[in-house]
Amino acid sequence: MKNTACPPKGSEPLMSTSRHRWQGLIYLMPALLVITMAVGYPIVHLFEMAFGQTNSFGIITGNAGFKNFSGLFASGLMRVMLNTVIWTAGILVPTIIISLALAYAVSLPLKGQSFFRTIIIIPWAIPLTIVAILGDMAFNSTYGQVNTLLLQLHLISHPIGWLATARTSFPVMMILAIWVSIPFTTLTLLSGIQAVPGEILEASAIDGAKGFYRFRKIILPQITNALQLVVLINLAYIFNSFPIIWIMTQGGPASTSSTITIFVYQLAFTLGQFGQAGAAALLAFIILMGLGVAYVKVYRRTEGNLL
């Protein structure tokens, strides 16, 4: 009798788990709603704009099919994409290499370790707009400190117009972008290095591993997750960066230093071509997503041996 009154063995935990799942989902609903609104809606709207006919205020008035995309090539999309690739690769690779070196250096038990860790954070504390304005002043051809210093050191014979052509302005802006990207990257990698179990480091030390060999063979394989994270975040951040170029050259002269974000901004807010701007932004989004997914896949396939 007692046995028949009881539920079948194992059914109570199952019901309980199922109820817990629903409860969990209910608790997650506010966060899910916020994420849907904040991320999902802009993406849907981006698609609407890219394939829509828009007026000069960005209001969708009809369907344009692929017309917005075909107009992009005549507007100089290819040159802008090439610039974006150079910009992204030229900042991402040096940032990762320098940050790895710095993270490893400040992880070592050296004198003044906390001082150096603080110094590394400083560029992060300065707003990007201020960095760009200071950079613009420093590299000014007439009164910039860089020219003044180089002239005083007799390294140049006449002032250089750093921002006058893309050949010099692009590297200058990339140096500034690397400078501001280093703090976050270094700190994230440093936390990865600090999480490496002490026993592994001790064992490797006993086995005679030291210097660069110790870093490459012992530490680097242990921080693959942190490395993957900083590459992905920096990839998106650098690809989409705007303030430095906009403040220093506005993509000029003659759009030669323009990247995809400057291109999209000018299409939308200077030319009032919101449909084309949406199409360009959608292309950039797809390329970035593709790059991110490809990177993660290759990274996993090579088990972290890819930098």
């Binding site: 117009g161 750093w162 006058a164």
Partner: peptide, 21 residues
């Protein structure tokens, strides 16, 4: 003109003019 014309904004030139350059 000033050297490096393609780096000269109006605001920048005004500063130079006001300093007698």
């Amino acid at each position: 003109t000033e050297p490096n014309v393609t780096a000269s904004t109006r605001a920048g030139l005004e500063t130079q003019f006001s300093s007698g350059k």
